[in-house]
Design a protein around this nucleic acid. Structure first.
Lengths: 357, 357
DNA sequence: TTGTACGCGTTATCAA
DNA sequence: TTGATAACGCGTACAA
């Protein structure tokens, strides 16, 4: 026999009070006499009642304490990026104070029955790293009346965004290189969003005029920033932010059959780390022979001896801003978009051009 | 004026059918005539109704489609480890088919009001990487009547676990080194769970007799496996699985003031990668001068030129097994613990001892 | 195939 | 400070 789980009504009866009084004891929203409270608590322990059923409470209250995080890629891909990790941490931290947690939802999934925006009991939605069909997601959320916040992506008017000054920041780094005298500069880019034909070919030159075709804002904006200073710099696209991708790009850049650039602008610290390794392997010293700049400014694992010249972005703040936007919307306020700015940090991976080569 | 959101009753009225019929149209649990279905769907679109409210449904059905994942550390720490990333992917994939998603919950948090096992509308709980006060968590879950699964940790009898043959696997790798003739072997360990005094001191020698004090099963079991072959091998503890920690350990191992080991058993691939980098820096070639073994067997970023000799664990399978255990418990079945086994893979980071040194 | 009636467990409101 | 009442929105026996 499966004895029915005790409800607040059972507790109230056992304690000799009304259900509403028992409820109040648990929520604390109304003063209750000590004696009553004690009786209720006692009855609860007696019956093994461990507080209001969240499901019933969420129906009654109209909020579940759950914020859906729609991730564009698989979990393992998303969290491979330190920026995303820290960002998620900030997001979790920002929604926790109002009792909310993060429910991971994937955008595309071929799994039948998988939970979605429309089937999960959500209070709000945060879109992170979603490049493709934002429209559908937004529509689904809107029909549900769910507040939506987008992190680094465009969701159209009315949807608050958390943005970074990617272009300006990247321009700063490029200018730094220009000031050091570099003229022969290459760019190593994040994913362009172009479908990868065959998983093997991950690195490829970008047509100088194809800038507008890049659908991923981050990639495009950082490219534009670099091009603001070096309009003709060749750019190499990768499959994403990783040391290995940077390494692969570096091998192309430092191949003996072409002139070696004196500086490389990498669009992430991980890419920069890979480029540096490739340089080392090619017998080039950093920064004496090649200067390298990164982007992100988080402690990157595996970069140990170097301290990157990079743009420090407030990754945790990015998540926190999104969380606060969510909180504002749930409170009925009109949330504003947030533009966060990066800080340029000079490390030991950039130096002046040494003319005698 | 905030127009009330349409409910299934509104839709039914609009369509001229009963609420139950409308409900059935959406759940599909009972055949409905095409004409009726069409009318209902039409009414729904008309009213902007986008399916049953998940909150109400979850109260009614007694299940929310949410599996709580209690993580011991912060999100960014947890997901730094590729094994955890892949494991979470497997878990998400395994619970998706029955409409469930993962809600991230932190064990310790100083944030007031943060969601917990008792306040979140969960169907089940998975504990991952929780070392400390499991008892409290288990009790909370038990009082709620929530099924619990523990991944690599001991939750006492009755709680299904997903385990790895850490000791046996590590022994295999050690034996491989022994077969190659290595006698001077050092071990680089994962975190021992000992409180780090001052965040700076991350690497330290482990008292050979202190094995039993290691509270983290993974670390202890892999150590035991290595000691099965090399009972006296010196062991260096780190703060966790990362290239940087391995690098720091490697610097200690290859310091000029002590005899250099001919082989290093690292308890993770990331640690191994760091050890290799330290070896390179010390002017040692791998595997000619030093052999290095890892553990995990996932593609590790930043290891590019090498292919580790390592133990391949089915990380995704680990998550999937946990998800299936959850599914079984929700279905009322008695789920069994699962023991997964690693597969030894020989790469190019181990070789025979070269006597002429 | 459709409709009626009821309860899932809670909490806000208001009156006492 | 406490209690009665009425939703919250839905799913499902059961009867028709």
């Amino acid at each position: 026999m499966t004895t029915r789980r005790a409800t607040i009504a059972d507790v109230a009866r056992e304690a000799g009070v009304s259900p509403s009084t028992a409820s109040v004891v648990f929520s604390g929203k109304t003063p209750v006499s000590d004696a009553t409270r004690r009786r209720v608590i006692e009855a609860a322990t007696e019956l093994g009642y461990s507080g209001p059923d969240p499901r019933a409470a969420s129906l009654r209250l109209g909020r579940s304490g759950i914020v859906g995080v729609v991730v564009g890629s698989s979990l393992k891909d998303l969290f491979r990026d330190p920026v995303q990790r820290v960002m998620m941490d900030g997001l979790a931290e920002a929604v926790a104070p109002f009792g909310a947690g993060l429910l991971l939802l994937r955008n595309h999934t071929d799994i039948e029955n998988a939970p979605t925006l429309t089937t999960a009991p959500l209070d709000a939605v945060v879109l992170v790293g979603c490049d493709g069909p934002l429209r559908e997601l937004l529509e689904a959320a809107h029909r549900r009346g769910l507040p939506v916040v987008v992190i680094e992506g465009d969701a159209g008017p009315g949807v608050p965004r958390v943005l970074l000054d990617n272009r300006e920041a990247q321009r700063t780094a490029a200018q730094h290189l220009a000031d050091l005298g570099h003229t022969d500069v290459a760019i190593v880019m994040l994913s362009t969003g172009a479908p990868t034909i065959g998983a093997e070919i991950t690195v490829g030159w970008i047509d100088p005029d194809a800038t507008a075709d890049i659908t991923i804002d981050v990639t495009r904006d950082r490219l534009l920033g670099a091009r603001d200073v070096y309009p003709d710099a060749p750019a190499l696209a990768t499959a994403g932010s990783s040391i290995d991708e940077g390494w692969a790009a570096g091998r192309v850049l430092f191949a003996s059959d072409r002139p070696t650039p004196t500086a490389v602008i990498a669009q992430s610290d991980l890419l920069a780390a890979g480029v540096i390794r490739a340089a080392e392997e090619a017998g080039l010293r950093v920064p004496e022979d090649v200067s390298v700049t990164g982007f992100d400014g988080l402690p990157a694992d595996g970069l140990a001896p170097y301290e990157l010249t990079t743009l420090v972005q407030a990754a945790a703040e990015k998540g926190r801003a999104a969380g606060e936007a969510v909180a504002a919307m749930l409170a009925g306020d009109e949330p504003a978009s947030v533009l966060l700015t990066c800080q340029f940090r000079v490390g030991n991976t950039t130096g002046p051009v040494i003319s005698a080569r």
